[in-house]
Each structure stands twice: as C-alpha cells, then as structure tokens.
C-alpha cells in the first residue's frame, strides 16, 4: 500500500505534466503567445469581393504575419464586404497603405496582403483603408482569358481574309 506522501507525489507529477501538455498545445501547437489580442488595433477595409477569405485569416506584410482578420460583414448600403483587421500594435503603417486579397499557393488559403504607402501619418484604430484590391475569382480569370483568346482568334481570321 502507498503512503499518503507517495500518492500526493504521483498525483502532483501527473498534474504538472498534464498542465505541461496543455501549455505545449497552447504555445507550441496553437502559437497562442504571438497574438494575445490585448495589444492590437482595428482598421477596416472595404472590398468588392472577398472570395474565400475567412475570419482569422492572416494579414501579412512582406510575407510576415502582422495581424488577423477579426470580422467580416456585408454593407447593405454600398454592397461591399467590410473586413475588420486586427493588427499587432508593434507594427505601424502609413495612412495610405493598401490591402489586397491574395492566395497562398495555387489553391491555398486566402490572406490579406498589406502594402505600405508613403504618408507621414500612421493608421489609427478605426481608420478605413482607401485603396483595396479584391480577391481574384478563378471563374472570372478563366472568363477573361477565353475572351481575350477569342478576340485574338477573330483578329487573325480577319488578317487571312485580307
């Protein structure tokens, strides 16, 4: 039979490694430490089309993650998508920066790419980005490609007739 002390020791070890596992999952697997949400500021961007963008998608500048998409909703006045970005306060950007919706890889997740502008004043919480570029929708891209090919073909036909 175990003494009370041994029992306590084993249960203590168990609780410590259990908590350690939870910590490992939170920090190493989920990367909780990098964005705690406490030190961030919100800016907004309006897009004609956000494609497959989702809440919690990363916001990147020069490939570095600087924030995440915190909210997406539809503006029924302007018929645009309003995306709220939560940016880490460590990073500041000029007021005339622009946002693009990009895709990582050919079929990967969509994310927002910020490009810094040249203004002296920086973005503040609650500001709205003026310059945006919508997501590239594959169907539109293919449509455009076919249209231009067809136009090219038509020109060639005319040339041979001459």
């Amino acid at each position: 039979m175990m003494t009370r002390k041994e029992l306590d020791l084993w249960v203590g070890i168990f609780v410590v490694i259990g908590m350690g596992a939870l910590l490992f999952l939170s920090l190493k697997v989920a990367n909780l430490a990098s964005f705690s949400g406490a030190d961030s500021y919100q800016i907004r961007a309006k897009f004609d089309n956000i494609g497959g963008l989702k809440v919690r998608a990363p916001v990147k500048v020069a490939g570095v993650v600087v924030g995440r998409v915190s909210e997406i909703h539809f503006d029924n006045e302007t018929f645009e998508a309003v995306v709220t970005l939560s940016l880490d306060s460590r990073y500041q950007f000029p007021k005339d920066s622009s946002a693009k919706i990009l895709t990582s890889g050919l079929l990967g997740e969509q994310y927002i790419g910020l490009s810094a502008g040249g203004d002296v004043a920086n973005l503040k919480s609650g500001d709205t980005l003026k310059i945006t570029q919508s997501a590239v929708v594959l169907e539109n891209l293919i449509g455009q490609f076919l249209y231009s090919k067809a136009a090219e073909g038509g020109d060639k036909g005319n040339e041979t007739k001459k």
Partner: peptide, 15 residues
C-alpha cells in the same frame, strides 16, 4: 479532473 489532463497528454504525445 483527470480526463482533460489525460486528453491533453494524449494530444501532445500524438503531435
């Protein structure tokens, strides 16, 4: 009280 700790350990070991 044991179950969540065991599940966390399982996941951590799995990763």
């Amino acid at each position: 009280l044991s179950m969540p700790l065991l599940a966390a350990l399982f996941s951590a070991m799995g990763v």
